[in-house]
């Protein structure tokens, strides 16, 4: 509400911002899929913004490190965050739902894409979500969930447990969430 009042339609609107809203860019994924996106949404990615500013885009921006499925998700995120009327509260809710439904593999695809494209807000959300899966969990549980193979000998492990004995207490029992 307050946001709307501050920036009434037709008044004090930055013409450059207006142009960005109408101008569209094409993003091309590693597997050759093309996606249209408004410039105002695309530049929420600092990496894309730099490419647009350097004018090395030439109409189609190739993103060789992001596959089509992941790019589609990232674009959903960018569009929501560039939406005019969306309040901070709405965006926060969207973010929560957006990451809570993701499977582990998808979380990693998205975190890598967000890191590569430099989308700070998305990166934070996904990192938080990954951290949530490690919170208060035993070492064995974390290894199993993230498919981490231990290469310590039992003796080495015992030695390390002694070194940080205080950190080993009070973890949840190993059940899935």
């Amino acid at each position: 509400m307050a946001r709307k009042n501050r920036n009434p339609v037709g008044k004090n609107v930055d013409p450059e911002a207006q142009k960005k809203k109408t101008r569209t860019l094409t993003l091309k994924s590693s597997d050759g899929q093309e996606f249209s996106i408004s410039e105002s949404a695309a530049v929420l990615s600092i990496a894309i913004e730099n490419m647009v500013e350097d004018d090395c885009a030439g109409g189609v921006i190739p993103l060789p490190l992001v596959d089509g499925g992941t790019l589609a998700r990232v674009i959903t995120y960018l569009n929501k965050h560039a939406e005019d009327g969306a309040s901070d509260e709405e965006k926060r809710k969207f973010d929560e739902e957006f990451v809570s439904g993701m499977e582990m593999g998808v979380l990693f695809d998205v975190v890598l894409a967000a890191n590569y494209l430099d989308i700070r807000g998305l990166l934070r959300e996904v990192r938080r979500r990954i951290a949530d899966r490690m919170k208060n969990k035993s070492v064995e549980w974390v290894r199993k969930t993230f498919h981490i193979e231990s290469d310590f000998t039992p003796e080495e492990e015992e030695q390390m447990k002694k070194e940080f004995a205080w950190a080993w207490e009070g973890v949840d029992s190993d059940v899935d969430d």
Partner: peptide, 16 residues
């Protein structure tokens, strides 16, 4: 950084 120090320190034993 989202983890408590207990959780973070425990990651040291996951693998080399």
């Amino acid at each position: 950084k989202f983890l408590s120090l207990h959780d973070a320190v425990r990651t040291s034993i996951l693998s080399r």
